[in-house]
């Protein structure tokens, strides 16, 4: 079981938005992808799901290999890429997008949306336990997305991702704009998912998260990976961009 992306290149006109990006997600491990805004983190993550607008060979080139037991999926080598991604989206790879409220159907009760996910996963469609798991009352299931606070929407997003039961989960900036106690709750859920054997790709601006729960660290800058190392000794990072990020984090923590 692994997701292995090699030499990803995403082209817009004659400009490469992302080039030479390689990354790996392993079960029970958290790979953290860090970088400034606009460095291509989200785009790279979306290419794992084949959800880059204009999936044609002229725009996205990649060598993506997803191993699932005996089977190996190589969706970017297929002639019909859209069809090749169909068995991957959901059961193998899940996605918790950056703005969880925008990722919810605006006019459908959130409980029903959780049920939709559960049905897709072939599970019993009662959303109650999943709401409880992310510390929401069961009455929340009847609300529409615009009636939720930011933190509630974020937790619904996590409930959806967990309900889908993907083997690997791409989590895009899950703690942005949350207060510390909610942040801790979300991190707790991510840890629990990791301990249950889910492989996570965590995208963030925040290097502090890397120390708390990262296994492997990737730093992106202007569409390229500039640092690729284990998440242990963060002080010894080589590239200037990674060092700048690290120093900014240290200042933030007052050290």
């Amino acid at each position: 079981m692994s997701v292995h992306l090699r030499s990803l290149r995403i082209q817009a006109g004659d400009r490469a938005l992302v080039s030479q990006v390689s990354l790996r997600i392993l079960p029970g491990k958290i790979t953290v992808l860090v970088g400034a805004s606009g460095s291509g983190k989200t785009l790279s993550a979306r290419s794992l799901l084949g959800l880059v607008r204009g999936i044609e060979p002229g725009i996205v080139q990649a060598d993506l290999e997803i191993q699932d037991g005996e089977k190996t999926h190589r969706p970017y080598d297929a002639r019909d890429r859209e069809a090749a991604f169909a068995p991957i989206r959901g059961p193998l790879l899940g996605w918790l997008p950056q703005n969880p409220r925008a990722a919810l159907d605006p006019l459908r009760a959130v409980g029903l949306q959780i049920s939709d996910c559960l049905k897709l996963a072939g599970r019993q469609s009662d959303p109650g336990p999943w709401l409880k798991r992310v510390n929401l009352a069961s009455g929340v299931g009847a609300l529409l997305p615009h009636q939720l606070s930011g933190g509630m929407a974020q937790r619904i997003g996590i409930a959806l991702a967990l309900a889908r039961g993907s083997r690997f989960l791409i989590v895009d900036e899950p703690t942005t704009g949350l207060d510390p106690s909610l942040r801790a709750g979300i991190l707790q859920e991510l840890r629990a998912a990791r301990d249950a054997g889910v492989g996570l790709l965590l995208i963030t601006h925040d290097l502090r998260l890397v120390r708390k729960l990262g296994d492997h660290l990737l730093v992106m800058d202007r569409g390229c990976i500039v640092e690729d190392r284990s998440a242990q000794d963060l002080g010894a990072m080589k590239s200037p961009q990674a060092q700048a990020l690290w120093q900014a984090t240290a200042r933030l923590e007052g050290r």
Partner: peptide
């Protein structure tokens, strides 16, 4: 067509 929830639905494997 390209709203977040449509992409999210596709990512969940909705047809």
């Amino acid at each position: 067509r390209h709203r977040g929830f449509v992409l999210a639905g596709q990512a969940h494997g909705l047809r």
